[in-house]
Design a protein around this nucleic acid. Structure first.
Lengths: 231, 231
DNA sequence: TGGACGGTTCGGCCGCCGCCGAAGGGTGTG
DNA sequence: CACACCCTTCGGCGGCGGCCGAACCGTCCA
């Protein structure tokens, strides 16, 4: 309808510094203005202006604590939008890593990471595939949990709290694997459960996660995922 | 990963003229450069430059025929992206129409329209709701056709051709109704069937469609949709 | 073979926006 | 109370990009 509104929203994503902020914030956590400025390589004053625009545009939510300004993605819908844009903008063949450090960090991210509030990477794909094969998730005619899938969550004491318009299950296209993994309320609940129950732990200060020994056996027991599939 | 790629893609949407083009192209058809220029109110030379960028960025596909340059959205994924951006950028309460002509055109669009290649507006919502109530579509745990839904399509001779990564069923958020309607392969096939079978016809040169008398009885017979629900 | 028409290219203008450093305000700390 | 720290505001600079009109090129038509 209103082209100017669409253009104004897109303009918020159309700056390299702001895009860097958004990609960093895709880890689902709240960052301070200074952290984002360092991450994107711009002066604090520049970052401050960018954050002002993103908050005013409803892309970010902010929370002031003392002399710190914490910001996070405003809601799952925005995260979804950033994911989609990022997925479309990725070149088909990713650039080769330039250093050993970069390669190992990239490998860790490819093994397992969070994508806003759910699990992605080979870990996320393995879970999604296992749930599909076991009849807990239906991907052939769309993307939805089955009744058995609901029971599976229930049996593990993971409650799916429906609120707002957010779908219970949604496919999120994985950057590295180029296949969908489980997102939505169920994806978020599962990720929280995995972290709470010690199935995996965050490594470094980044989005990467590592599956623990207990996680491997739990994933094998509940979904039949072979530990080798995660490496 | 690459913030500059994301920003570059978003920049293609971040101009009012280009956004107007994309919204016009959401009707799923191919437009000529001149038509788009008039629609957006810019000089032909300006439109030509914009189209060059959109095509180079993979957002539009072009087809040259004689002295005409036809362009359309490159693929359903782009249409999805435009829809999502448009839905997010809409103000919560749409502006009141300024003229009677505008009001009646808006009302026609609200009743029924195409959204890229599927049906939207009250018509799209009514179909989606009816399919959900009848157990053909599952929305409570995601968005997917059920086995009975597959049979329903089969019974009507509508074949769902799976190709590429496009999902069979997907929810597309409706601008006017703010509820999801059926998109994806099934949504496109149903829309094509509805137009082919004369259930509805395009009105004007716009995206609006009108349900015919045969359409009303067909929708009632096959999905139990009362004609009153479409007005 | 003109001429109308759709589209493109080019030059030039203008405005917007991202960037920084300097200065200042509010907050926590020694 | 002074100082360090995080963030913000402001001024000024520079570049990018959208816009148009004029000229041009190819296509279709009389």
């Amino acid at each position: 309808m209103a082209a100017s509104d669409l253009a104004a929203l897109a303009a918020l994503f159309a700056d390299e510094s702001r895009a860097a902020f958004l990609l960093a914030l895709l880890d689902g956590r709240a960052w301070t203005a200074g952290e984002l400025a360092r991450q994107a390589g711009v002066a604090p004053s520049t970052a401050s202006e960018h954050l002002g625009k993103l908050v005013a545009g409803g892309v970010l939510a902010e929370e002031r604590q003392g002399r710190h300004r914490y910001v996070r993605l405003a809601d799952p819908g925005i995260a979804h939008l950033v994911e989609d844009l990022a997925a479309r903008s990725q070149p088909e063949v990713p650039a080769a890593p330039r250093s050993l450090r970069e390669a190992s960090a990239g490998e860790a991210m490819a093994r397992g990471r969070t994508c806003y509030d759910h699990l992605a990477g080979r870990l996320g794909i393995a879970i999604t595939e296992a749930m599909t094969v076991r009849g807990l998730l239906r991907q052939d005619t769309g993307f939805a949990l089955t009744d058995r899938g609901l029971t599976w969550f229930d049996d593990r004491g993971i409650t799916l709290v429906r609120k707002g318009r957010r779908p219970v299950a949604r496919g999120c296209l994985d950057w590295t694997e180029r296949r969908p993994h489980l997102a939505g309320i169920a994806g978020a609940a599962l990720c929280r459960h995995a972290l709470d129950a010690g199935w995996c732990v965050r490594i470094g200060s980044e989005r990467a996660v590592k599956v623990t020994a207990e996680g491997e056996s739990a994933l094998y027991a509940s979904l039949g995922i072979a530990p080798a599939a995660l490496r």
